[in-house]
């Protein structure tokens, strides 16, 4: 039984530090949410207590959805993230499977190269890449980002899947080989169906990374109709006049919700992926 003294000690030792970190982590989101439902009269009045809302309103959301291209940006973001993730998973498997299962000259070198490419940050490449995209005539098309996001996602998926593939026992594949299946058949029909959890965590990471991407989208997408949410919000919702914060916070909150939802369903996979030790921080 927990005594009264023990309970107080439990609160001080456990909940005090945890609560501190929780408030720190969540306050900006609370502030985002509360700003988005405050009428302007409250938002820009310095004499009312700012932490609560008195007369909640959905006006900022209505304005955001009717007066800006937010819905279009959301569609663009989802489309780009989904296609880029699919491409990256397929190409990632094509790299990871041989590296995990086959013995061939140069395997070590390829594995090192993939790991190194995964660690190359975008700011090192964006200037030449911008010129390449221009010369290909892909400026202001979603293709430009669908093509460039996998440059960071393929090495990432390959590296994550490589780790996962090595944990899958080899016996089933060996049995299939003895039964006369080709390597391709063994991989596609025996091995890959065993790896669904690996694909889910790699897919979630790739999808959230795509939604998070800003630099390439900022440079390649300069027209309203092709923008993604982060670029649209930064470039078009921050305006010259002062009173735009309600709409901006509504946009930031709505833009965060898809990622937060996906991740809340798959949080176990996410944490498992994090702890296999290979995520950009």
């Amino acid at each position: 039984m927990v005594t009264g003294h023990g309970r107080i000690e439990h609160i001080v030792r456990v909940w005090l530090p945890v609560a501190f970190f929780l408030v720190l982590a969540l306050f900006p989101f609370y502030w985002m949410a509360i700003t988005s439902i405050k009428p302007n009269a409250e938002l820009y009045n310095k004499n009312v207590m700012p932490l609560i809302v008195r007369a909640p309103t959905l006006k900022h959301y209505v304005d955001l959805l009717t007066k800006s291209s937010f819905l279009l940006w959301t569609w663009n973001t989802m489309l780009v993230a989904a296609v880029a993730t699919a491409i990256s998973l397929v190409l990632g498997v094509m790299l990871a499977y041989p590296l995990a299962r086959m013995r061939f000259a140069g395997a070590g070198l390829i594995a090192m190269t993939v790991a190194a490419i995964y660690l190359v940050p975008q700011p090192l490449l964006f200037i030449p890449l911008a010129d390449v995209i221009n010369r290909l005539g892909l400026g202001n098309t979603l293709t430009s980002v669908i093509l460039t996001y996998p440059t960071m996602l393929v090495p990432f998926c390959a590296w994550l899947l490589l780790g996962y593939f090595k944990t899958v026992p080899k016996e089933l594949e060996e049995a299939a080989r003895i039964d006369g299946a080709s390597r391709l058949q063994t991989m596609r029909q025996v091995f890959l169906p065993l790896c669904t959890p690996g694909f889910i965590s790699a897919g979630i990471f790739a999808f959230t990374l795509s939604q998070n991407e800003f630099l390439y989208a900022l440079i390649f997408l300069t027209k309203t109709t092709v923008r993604t949410v982060p670029v649209g919000v930064i470039s078009e919702l921050i305006r010259g006049d002062v009173f735009y914060w309600g709409q901006l916070m509504a946009g930031a909150l709505l833009g965060s919700i898809p990622v937060a939802l996906i991740y809340s369903f798959f949080v176990e996979h996410y944490v498992a992926g994090l702890t296999t030790g290979s995520v950009k921080g």
Partner: peptide, 30 residues
């Protein structure tokens, strides 16, 4: 708690940074 604590890392950086921009606003900083 673990899931909630991970939120700052998950949410698109640009969108959470814009919330900080508002929290540090010269006139209305909370």
């Amino acid at each position: 708690v673990r899931a909630l604590l991970l939120l700052p890392f998950i949410v698109p950086t640009v969108l959470s940074t814009v919330a900080w921009l508002w929290m540090l606003d010269p006139a209305f900083s909370v």
